[in-house]
Design a protein around this nucleic acid. Structure first.
Length: 202
DNA sequence: ACCGGGATGTTCT
DNA sequence: GAACATCCCGGTG
């Protein structure tokens, strides 16, 4: 007999490899309300974007494999970390099958634990909702850098995992076009939790 | 509140 | 040499 924890309670389980081994446009909305964990730090995922590889002109993988995006083309369930605008790191969960180059960008979290450490890492954050409300912000709060590129989120490399804490994704999620793109700007592949103050922007 | 511009350096053409 | 999956600050209303 298997125990069936009530929603929002019970032990958190690490998402298995098969969760990621699907189209990123299916994975993305299901990542909402899952929890990114790094040791004492944790935050509920409230905003994501899908990047669909060779068919997606907005994706780093659109023109094939390069040194920067090599992790995207590796096995699913690993973290793809890239550097942008000379200042910021951004983190994705690699999806699909090895070789496809598809992933989901983690755009915002609602902080759950480790507020003191996050604040220390993000001196410029005035309020708690400024700690993780953007792809660069959440990487700063969780100290995610190039060192973490390729970390296996299923094995817990570098202390990083994504867990299911028993809270279902919102139905329906809010859907819009993706933020900050020139190419592929019209594709509706951004999802966020409705009425969530930690989303990067309405 | 909204808007405009500067920071900053890796990556790829 | 241009572009960039961003963030922050200072202006104005």
């Amino acid at each position: 007999m298997q125990a069936s924890p009530a929603p929002g309670s019970g032990p958190a389980t690490v998402l298995p490899r098969r969760f990621y081994r699907r189209d990123p446009r299916d994975v993305a909305p299901e990542l909402l309300n899952k929890v990114l964990v790094r040791g004492p730090l944790s935050g509920r995922i409230v905003e994501v974007e899908a990047y669909a590889g060779a068919e997606d002109p907005g994706s780093h993988a659109y023109r094939g494999i390069t040194r920067r995006n090599a992790t995207m083309f590796g096995p699913p369930g690993h973290l793809y970390v890239y550097f942008t605008y000379g200042m910021h790191w951004c983190a994705n969960a690699v999806c699909g099958e090895e070789g496809q180059g598809v992933a989901v960008l983690l755009r915002a979290l609602a902080p759950l634990s480790g507020f003191g450490q996050m604040r220390a890492a993000r001196q410029k954050a005035r309020r708690d909702r400024d700690l993780c409300s953007g792809p660069g912000k959440l990487c700063q709060a969780f100290a995610v850098t190039k060192e973490d590129d390729g970390a296996d989120l299923v094995a817990g490399d570098r202390d990083l995992v994504i867990t299911d804490a028993g809270l279902a994704p919102p139905v329906p999620a809010s859907v819009t076009t993706r933020v900050g793109l020139s190419a592929g700007a019209d594709l509706p592949w951004r999802w966020y939790v409705p009425d969530e103050p930690n989303v990067s922007r309405r």
